[in-house]
């Protein structure tokens, strides 16, 4: 099968879980405190066949086809927030997104998988102490930030290793 990876199960768990933890930390920090960076967490807009496009963002039922528009809503309309992830889980979605040449090593393989991340947490709204609290659930598909997936690469851009390709957020409490 072409869809194999030289990485072991342990490698996959290690890479995916640290990627998820780093991503979750950075992402919710940005929502809380550096909203002008929000769009840098997403893959750049790219069309797909059948009139679809990526990234797919569904935020409490509101669709966004473009992270810049999502960022703008957060910057201009969202009150003060404090998002806190209480539970995080991750799986490798696809361990081998594109066939790699035979010479490809572990480093290349690490940058050739996609992840699915599930977060459960709460958000304090409006005001630190007495603002209303809501529960949320957030799910992401993350892909490596590299040119092949349309990213700007880790060297340029904001140095993010993983980018959001799909997201589904809901207030659940």
């Amino acid at each position: 099968m072409a869809t194999t990876t030289p990485l072991t199960e342990t490698d996959l768990t290690r890479i995916s879980s640290s990627a998820a933890e780093d991503f979750v930390d950075a992402y919710y920090t940005a929502l809380n405190a550096s909203r002008h960076h929000i769009s840098s967490f997403y893959v750049p807009p790219s069309p797909l066949p059948n009139n679809r496009s990526l990234p797919h963002i569904s935020y409490n039922g509101e669709p966004y086809s473009d992270a810049a528009a999502f960022q703008e809503t957060f910057e201009k309309q969202m009150p003060w927030t404090h998002f806190e992830a209480q539970s995080v889980n991750v799986h490798v979605l696809n361990p081998c997104m594109v066939p790699l040449g035979e010479k490809a090593g572990k480093k290349d393989a690490e940058r050739n998988m996609s992840l699915v991340v599930q977060v459960s947490g709460y958000v304090r709204l409006v005001e630190r102490k007495e603002g209303p609290m809501r529960g949320f659930s957030d799910s992401f598909v993350l892909v490596p930030n590299k040119e092949e997936v349309g990213g700007r690469g880790t060297k340029g851009g904001e140095g993010r290793k993983w980018l959001v390709q799909s997201q589904n957020f809901r207030f659940v409490v």
Binding site: T3, H56, G61, N94, M97, V98, P99, S166, N168
Partner: peptide, 24 residues
């Protein structure tokens, strides 16, 4: 319940090495 088409899902038959469409 929400769903959307998710590209890049592994193809167990191996016919589409770049992955196939599935759902999230």
């Amino acid at each position: 319940v929400e769903a959307h088409i998710q590209p890049g899902v592994p193809d167990p038959t191996g016919q589409s090495p770049n992955g196939v469409d599935g759902f999230m």
